[in-house]
């Protein structure tokens, strides 16, 4: 009987093992970095709150960490971020959803193939460009209609952040709309529904979980957006509802404080981490919320 070797060759075993180890190291590295970032955030945030009470942080209406008499109320920054996010949402959610409906239900396959990449280019423009676009084009335009508009203002920043997040809404919503089975569309057409009725009364409601998840992700991006709002919205922590005034968002504050005027180890320096933690918790919550919405309503259609 001829001898057949079925045992593994030593060198192959070693190679397979090494490849596995390298791949594991890559996967582990990104996870470890994330954990590290969170740990640093948590440690510095605790250090900050050993010096400033959480109550003050959450209820004081002034954010003046660099002044002689320090105030650490995060509300002005929070209001600034929320105002930009709401303004961006007002711009992006309707336009993004209508674009998605157009791409999914109205555009032919060829038009869709052309339009979708073009739209996604919007997402590829560096955000610093959006910032200067807001400052040098949108703000002067706003001043034509509202002369009282300040040079740095929330409205211009909201508008450009809104434009920036349109692709997030339209692209994810379109995926959700296209996932609705054609049998539902046919059923509606068979009852004498028009294309508009099929789109708005059957397809959008059936895809609602995906659409809402795209909204939440887009808003979460708007809250985290940094460069455009730093350039265009100003650096004045300000509790206001007037979008024509200068404000400061949480992200813009982090940029300002990181630029070097703040001596390391001081409370003012640690505000960076407390604000970053707040921002992180908000965007984390929104991402979890969007995942939950997707999972909760996934079984809406068969």
């Amino acid at each position: 009987m001829p001898h057949v070797s079925l045992t593994a060759k030593g060198s192959r075993n070693f190679k397979e093992g090494a490849i596995g180890a390298v791949l594991f190291a890559c996967a582990a590295a990104s996870t470890l970095v994330t954990i590290g970032v969170v740990l640093v955030l948590v440690r510095e945030t605790f250090a900050f709150f050993s010096e400033v009470s959480v109550i003050d942080f959450l209820t004081d209406t002034r954010w003046e960490p660099m002044f002689q008499e320090q105030h650490f109320g995060v509300l002005p920054l929070l209001v600034g971020s929320v105002m930009v996010a709401v303004g961006a949402g007002i711009v992006a959610l309707p336009i993004g959803l209508l674009t998605a409906i157009f791409l999914s239900e109205y555009a032919g396959p060829r038009l869709r193939k052309t339009l979708k990449p073009l739209l996604e280019i919007l997402a590829g423009i560096p955000t610093v460009v959006y910032g200067y676009f807001a400052l040098t084009f949108v703000t002067p335009l706003l001043r034509v209609f509202f002369p009282e508009t300040e040079i740095f203002n929330a409205a211009a920043a909201s508008l450009v952040v809104g434009i920036m997040i349109i692709p997030t809404v339209s692209s994810l919503s379109e995926d959700a709309l296209r996932a609705v089975p054609d049998s539902l569309r046919e059923g509606a057409y068979g009852l004498g529904a028009t294309k508009l009725e099929v789109s708005t009364r059957v397809v959008v409601p059936a895809a609602l979980s995906g659409v809402i998840a795209s909204f939440i992700l887009a808003i979460s991006r708007a809250i985290g957006e940094t460069m455009a709002v730093t350039i265009a919205a100003g650096n004045l922590p300000n509790i206001t509802v007037n979008p024509l005034e200068s404000i400061q968002t949480m992200t813009a504050y982090i940029v300002q404080a990181s630029l070097g005027d703040t001596p390391q180890g001081t409370t003012a320096y640690r505000t960076l981490f407390a604000v970053a933690m707040t921002l992180f918790l908000i965007t984390l919550a929104m991402n979890v919320l969007s995942q939950w919405v997707l999972a909760r309503f996934r079984e809406e259609y068969q």
Partner: peptide, 12 residues
Amino acid sequence: GMVFQKPNPFPK
């Protein structure tokens, strides 16, 4: 009107 091969009620 039309009734299809697979039941296709709306998610309503």
